[in-house]
Design a protein around this nucleic acid. Structure first.
Lengths: 244, 244
DNA sequence: TCGTGATTGGGCTGTCAAGCCCAATCGCGG
DNA sequence: CCGCGATTGGGCTTGACAGCCCAATCACGA
């Protein structure tokens, strides 16, 4: 009856067991992010996590259960990152610019892609039943953007004409698609262009004085704000995980 | 010295051989599109194409060579489709709307994804040397959009302020990302929102009289043009391939 | 007609990874 | 101190798949 994920109940493990399970999960997430699900076998996992064959089977009876756990782990990681203070709930254009700059500045994004998106596209065609888990994560991710835009509307920072849900979807799609293009091109430019152009569109709805100075159509030439690529400051859990 | 693709030289095959090779390639493209590279084995291929084990090895010595051929085939297919007359070189907003409507109307797009993008994301992390082939295809794809927008500028249909290259990248990224989100959600809505919103942005640069009536920012509420989902007319090679 | 190379058939083998088993050890609670 | 479940180790079996081989047939040209 329970939604058996195939994963051992965490509360039935001792502290040591939980630590081992977490170590496996962490290294699995890293390996799978770098090499893909099909490019990672249990022998690599054993060496990376320093565990023996039977531990994998003990804590994750099947590979599917491990992949499911990694998905949940990555989903939580990326959502936590987007909810961190540095983006202030995405209630300003600057927050969106800072968000774009973060990903534009991380080379891992165009080497390995989005930690969730590349995982999703790799297994979406398999028979693994991960659609609900992934769909939920992407919905929440989009909602973070949507609620931020709605908050900007409530504060009168952008026009009521803007459609927060659609703009949020465009931002997320531009990120996922831009990441794929950047991976293929081995060049961050496509992601940079996609994100900055999407945010430029968001900016055309701005009502603040300094945005009114420029005509909305001219926003594409006023992208100085998006060119801050020299960030090197702390970037929280997600960033460290990406950069590992 | 030659850029040995691992594929047999087509001109060294007789007509019968070429037919067999084409039959294998066609079915391989279809199977791989539906089930992914890792979800397709040579036994399925043999049954689908009605050939025997050694034919696969005869025409495609390795699986990598087959995948490379499929990539080239899909790339040509999607580029030919976008260059077809029905989109008139993407020199008008209507052409972009028609393009979006086409993909929004095909359920295969959110079941199996983009024929090129899903292939790309599945193998971009493997050691297959397909980056150049894929990067070239995506560049050409983006250039089709870019040149269309440039032509619109030359004809005075949209403002000179618009940045064709960046807008083209956004459109392609929105398509790829929207397709991924739609696949995960098993719902066309994310792709529809992403594409229509991206085209709405393009429309804010329009200079034509009927676009001037509406304020650019209001374009998001004037999306009647994007809601034509009742298309069922002929859609050329690419469409038939997708729908097969 | 004959021969050579292209084409086809089916089977075979080596490789690799996932999952499972038995045995040994640890560690907490009684 | 003892017992039992949790934890760890390493090896082994099974299955799947890609790649390869030998033999038979076809087809075009000399």
């Amino acid at each position: 009856m329970k939604p058996t994920t195939g994963v051992r109940d965490p509360h039935k493990l001792t502290g040591k067991g939980q630590a081992t399970r977490a170590r496996i999960l962490e290294h699995a997430a890293e390996l799978i992010y770098a090499k893909g699900v099909h490019g990672t076998n249990n022998e690599q996992l054993r060496r990376a996590a320093g565990v023996s064959g039977s531990q994998l089977n003990h804590y994750f009876p099947t590979k599917e259960s491990l992949v499911l756990a990694v998905i949940a782990w990555q989903a939580e990681s990326v959502l936590t990152f987007h909810r961190s203070e540095q983006f202030a709930c995405f209630d300003s254009l600057d927050a969106f610019r800072a968000w774009a700059d973060f990903y534009i500045g991380y080379e891992h994004v165009y080497q390995e892609g989005c930690s969730l998106g590349s995982l999703a596209s790799e297994i979406v065609k398999t028979d693994l039943d991960v659609h609900d888990e992934l769909a939920n994560a992407f919905d929440q991710w989009r909602d973070i953007f949507r609620e931020g835009i709605e908050r900007m509307q409530q504060h009168g920072r952008i026009s009521a004409e803007a459609d927060p849900a659609r703009l949020a979807t465009l931002l997320l799609a531009a990120f996922q698609g831009g990441t794929l293009l950047a991976q293929v091109a081995r060049n961050i430019a496509p992601l940079k262009d996609a994100l900055q152009t999407a945010i430029d569109y968001l900016q055309t709805f701005a009502t603040s004085p300094d945005a009114d100075v420029m005509a909305p159509q001219a926003s594409s030439v006023m992208r100085k704000a998006g060119d801050r690529l020299d960030r090197e400051d702390a970037n929280g859990e997600h960033g460290r995980l990406l950069a590992r």
